[in-house]
Amino acid sequence: MTVNFLMQNLINALQWGSFYALIALGYSMVYSILMLFNFAHGDIFMVGAYIGLGVSLGLLSLFGSGAAAVLPGWVVLVLTILISMFLTAFVGIIVERVGYRPLREAPRASAAITGLMIGIILETANILFLGGSRLKFPQLIESVTYNIGGVYVTNKKIMIVLVSIGLMLALHQLITRTKWGMAMRAMAYDYVVVPLVGVPMNTIAAMTFAIGSALAAAAGILFGLAYPVLDPYMGVSFGWKAFVAAILGGRGSIMGACIAGFMLGFIEIMTVPAIQIMNRLFSLNIGSNFRDLIAYSIVLLILIFRPHGLFGQAYSAKLRL
């Protein structure tokens, strides 16, 4: 087991964690404002990836691809991310308007299952309209693999990690430096009193869904670049795991969601080499398919010792962003 081996896994974990972090943010933000988890969020990630697919194919047919391209691939990629984030934000707003706003005063359980139903509706609508067969996400930029002293890194991996961190920093700026961000923080602090002083609850709730969905769309496109086979159920188990990251980070904590997302990616990826090292040391024969079982047992242990997550508040009637 060399240093290279650990470095390689670390880089893989950074990429994998970026997706969890971006999606976990959406869960956390909605929770901090509305005190409920939007269980359709994994499927919004899926919708974002498919919107990204449509937008990128549209842009490629408009500006040409390959040798006849008018615009370089990375410009198309940036445009795809921006347009898809914008469009998916509206999906989030519609989900909030149709699924959550009418049930805002309803019992918690009703609001919680709303997300599950919307998720199923999004999945089946996708199958009905697109036929359910797997689709290839166009590779807008040429993949280049760098060999840095035996550690392999691709340009896409670097880009995915940098774009994710950039988006997280942008969100941080939005929440800490703008008036809207201040309103969101106030709402998260006390969603009963703050509307009384004139902060529009409906606008803030819609905005929260819009931002969370836009981040999920960005995650979807980056995911499509890294794992170019899209299927209608891609958001289900992935969404659940990101939800685990949101809880692990501490309900409603933005920074917690980011850090826990990376941490979850790290635990999941590193479990595989850890299994191999254990196998060698104790001549066992455990398969790498034990990954999730071991990884999520670790998460369970962490939660037993820190039941409010890494950055959650002990009594969560009031939360802060």
């Binding site: 990429q15 595989v272 080499p273 790498s288 990954r291």
Partner: peptide, 16 residues
């Protein structure tokens, strides 16, 4: 090396 149905990331197995 193995995985379970639905997995998308094989980077850890490939590193092994």
């Amino acid at each position: 090396e193995s995985f379970t149905t639905g997995d998308k990331d094989f980077s850890a197995q490939m590193t092994n």
